[in-house]
Simulated scan of single mutants.
Amino acid sequence: MSINPNEGTYAQVREASQAIQDKLGQVRPVIGLILGSGLGDLADQIQNPIVIDYHDVPHFPVSTVEGHAGRFVVGELEGRTVIAMQGRFHFYEGYSMKKVVFPVYVMRELGVKTLVITNAAGGMNRNFRAGDLMLISDHINMTGASPLIGPNDPELGVRFPDMSQAYNREYRVLAKKLAEEVRDDAGQPLVLQEGVYCGISGPAYMTPAELMMLARVGGDAVGMSTVGEVIAASHGGLKVLGISCITDMAIGEELEPLTHEQVMEVANRTKPKFQALVKAFVRQVEV
């Protein structure tokens, strides 16, 4: 693995965050939202939005995946000032893991204390159904990489960050309480699953044998994002709430062919439940 010691440094974080802050003026976000495949429409509900394209931010890559707009949206959501990423970066796009997580450090520099990270994922737990939401309680990093490999910049975080509460326990308790108040179109309560997310490098979907292995080691859902961002958030001292939209069932013994279009279709169908839960969390979380 080739490490670029000049990539993702605090100096670059400062330059990127200053460029964003210059566009924000006196606006200071306190909650960050990373919106996964098919879930970016939540940013369209932000009031008095300030939109900043990634290509206007120094040292930023561009998002190349269908369903990822590639921009920040900053403004008011449920009475709180938020910064939302409409589109994230992925390891499988060819970016280094340091580049993938660069926005996490930039949001931290802008004043964000709380990070809501979402994704589309395949469900490996037989109790799940496509269209469920899963609260992430923990993760297993199967990407073979970490954003912290290489020289450590103490301005960004400690050399050996603790990961025992990578997904904040109090946030999970609050999310479960709020889920009881959310109703779907038929007036039924939201069923919020909880489980372990397995992060893989992608971009190929997993084989049946690989899925059976991940399920046996404790995985409940599998996807191609999130773990690097959460490691960076822990490194930087941010509190994280993680939510997966279960877009398909990834049961190794019963695996069916899958396309990105199918993933997007289920994510789009699940948007109202997802948005209601995230908005309730933004409204009530203490930051």
Score class of each variant (00 low, 15 high):
284 Q>C: 00
172 R>P: 05
223 G>R: 01
245 C>I: 05
248 D>F: 01
244 S>M: 08
60 F>T: 03
227 V>I: 13
280 A>Q: 12
21 Q>D: 03
282 V>H: 08
149 I>M: 13
70 G>R: 04
12 Q>M: 13
108 R>K: 15
19 A>W: 13
265 E>P: 04
175 A>M: 13
114 T>M: 10
151 P>I: 10
63 S>L: 09
88 R>T: 05
154 P>N: 09
22 D>S: 14
220 D>Q: 09
9 T>G: 11
272 P>A: 08
36 G>K: 10
279 K>Q: 12
217 V>P: 11
192 L>T: 02
271 K>Y: 14
285 V>Y: 08
232 A>I: 08
118 T>S: 15
23 K>Q: 15
104 V>F: 09
226 T>W: 08
19 A>I: 06
228 G>D: 03
121 A>F: 04
254 E>C: 06
120 A>T: 08
271 K>S: 05
222 V>E: 01
216 R>K: 14
189 P>H: 12
27 V>K: 13
278 V>H: 01
32 G>Q: 11
95 Y>C: 05
52 I>M: 11
56 D>W: 05
175 A>N: 03
232 A>Q: 14
59 H>R: 07
95 Y>K: 11
244 S>V: 03
76 E>S: 06
279 K>I: 10
55 H>I: 03
257 P>I: 10
14 R>Y: 15
111 G>Y: 15
26 Q>M: 02
62 V>N: 04
285 V>M: 06
112 V>D: 02
104 V>T: 10
69 A>G: 00
125 N>V: 10
156 L>C: 12
238 L>Y: 12
38 G>W: 14
141 N>K: 02
164 S>I: 02
106 V>W: 15
93 E>T: 13
258 L>T: 07
195 G>T: 05
200 I>S: 00
279 K>Y: 03
268 N>M: 00
102 F>R: 12
14 R>G: 00
80 R>L: 10
63 S>E: 12
143 T>Q: 10
144 G>K: 11
163 M>R: 07
208 P>C: 10
148 L>T: 04
253 E>C: 11
171 Y>P: 01
244 S>Q: 11
176 K>Y: 07
182 V>M: 09
52 I>E: 04
70 G>A: 02
90 H>Q: 11
130 A>W: 07
253 E>S: 14
260 H>D: 00
26 Q>V: 06
113 K>M: 04
127 N>C: 03
66 E>Y: 09
30 V>G: 04
117 I>C: 13
184 D>K: 13
164 S>Q: 03
7 E>H: 09
14 R>Q: 15
33 L>S: 04
78 E>M: 08
258 L>H: 11
180 E>P: 05
254 E>Y: 15
107 M>N: 02
172 R>Q: 09
226 T>K: 09
234 S>H: 02
3 I>K: 07
245 C>Y: 00
184 D>Y: 14
